[in-house]
Design a protein around this nucleic acid. Structure first.
Length: 402
DNA sequence: TCTGGGGTCCTAGGACCC
DNA sequence: TCTGGGGTCCTAGGACCC
């Protein structure tokens, strides 16, 4: 039996949601109707376009380009800051509305969901359900969505990416040759900008070209990814809609510094504050980590990282910082650093934590201290807890001046 | 006042064991 | 004077996604 899958994608999510919130707060312009973008903070060297209005798009502005470049294309562009609390609010509203239609719902990202409607059609067609959802989101939540209607996740996702905004598109098997195959190969999900030139060199220009290429040739050139590409080009995908909430496989935080730093002690202070953030998140999930990873990005945009296994899985700020500091010292060559990141991987449930016979007592003590600090953070806000040696942005500025 | 931050998965190569 | 080879674990880096 064929599965009945929908992919729902909020149109210009960050910008639309900001527009609605601003109107609610009394702002008299709907920023969806003017040349506008949501952008990162330029003063913190994070000035890229995260979302754009349709009019901004007409000026040739793309998501991911610099705000500087967007201004050159459209000097009158209005730039609004990011605010994740707004996005989470509207994302939840969308999720709650969609949850009325099926129990098998997967939050694919902050603005996208997959729905498995196979056992939830109630004598209606999948397309009728999609049309109803589209209308209700617009009327009740005040923004528009694109909906892809298909028999698997890949085709539903590709369909929702067809003409925008506020559209419902089907992509059933018999429509693949006319709707999917004429598109450029780079439009296919999981084919990024590095793969496109390699495929073009093999005379593969469209998704149809890819679909008709010998799969073994693709496997030879791209390994596992080659098989996936070929299957996707042919509309093959058996992935389930993952409706159970899964814990993360890894957690990380990274930060672009307001200015480049080449003093290892100052970098270590940034690492400490990142370790505090990241272990706090880890403890919220009741997880412990086995692997610590420290990442640096140089001012030339060269990324490198070192990772190391802990003797025993933990969520302790102190132990993880100690490891992170070792990794930093072993990898750092003295370059000017633009970004610092810390990731924790190979996570496991806290219940399974193995008792370390030799330092059991001190682990428990440290665990208690972290828990106390966490509850203070929740109560008084994260910024109220500042360990000695932690550096904030103004310290970095002062450091640079000295 | 060019170039975010959060993830997942894969691969190549080295170390080590038998 | 020949220097295997399979398996597993680990790390660094890269590709892709939103």
């Amino acid at each position: 039996m064929k599965r009945q899958i929908l992919h729902i994608d909020a149109n210009n999510a960050f910008l639309s949601w900001t527009a609605i919130e601003m109107l609610k707060r009394g702002y008299n312009i709907d920023i969806r109707t003017i040349p506008s973008i949501i952008g990162g903070d330029e003063s913190r060297r994070a000035g890229i376009v995260l979302a754009k209005s349709s009019i901004a798009k007409e000026f040739g502005i793309h998501t991911g380009e610099t705000i500087f470049s967007a201004r050159k294309k459209c000097p009158q562009i209005k730039v609004f800051p990011t605010d994740f609390s707004i996005y989470i609010k509207y994302s939840n509203q969308l999720y709650n509305l969609l949850s009325e239609y099926t129990d098998i719902i997967e939050r694919f990202s902050i603005d996208e969901c997959f729905l498995d409607m196979t056992n939830y059609l109630q004598n209606k067609t999948l397309l009728e359900k999609a049309t109803e959802i589209s209308r209700r989101v617009k009327e009740e939540l005040g923004f528009t969505v694109n909906i892809g209607v298909a028999h698997n996740k890949l085709l539903a996702k590709m369909a929702s990416d067809f003409e925008k905004p506020d559209k419902v598109h089907t992509l059933f098997e018999e429509e693949i040759p006319t709707k999917l195959w004429p598109l450029s190969v780079g439009e296919l999900f999981m084919i990024g900008k590095k793969s496109v030139p390699k495929l073009n060199n093999m005379q593969i220009i469209t998704i149809g070209d890819l679909a008709k290429t010998d799969i073994n040739k693709l496997i030879k050139r791209f390994g596992k990814h080659g098989k996936l590409m070929w299957e996707y080009a042919n509309g093959i995908d058996n992935e389930e809609v993952h409706y159970k909430i899964e814990k993360p496989k890894g957690v990380g935080n990274s930060v672009t510094l307001p200015m480049d730093i080449s003093n290892i002690n100052k970098i270590a202070e940034i690492v400490l504050s990142l370790v505090e953030h990241v272990t706090y998140r880890l403890r919220k999930y009741d997880l412990i980590a086995n692997v610590v990873n420290v990442q640096l990005r140089t001012k030339e945009f060269k990324d490198y990282s070192h990772q190391g296994k802990l003797d025993c899985a933990t969520s302790s700020t102190k132990i993880i910082y100690k490891k992170a500091r070792e990794l930093l010292e072993e990898m750092y060559k003295g370059e000017a650093v633009r970004l610092v990141g810390v990731r924790l991987d190979n996570l496991e449930e806290k219940e399974s934590m193995q008792m370390n016979l030799f330092s059991n007592e001190s682990i428990e003590k440290q665990d208690k201290l972290d828990k106390v600090l966490d509850s203070l953070k929740r109560k008084y806000g994260y910024e109220s807890i500042i360990r000695a040696g932690k550096m904030n942005v103004s310290d970095i500025v002062k450091f640079k001046k000295n």
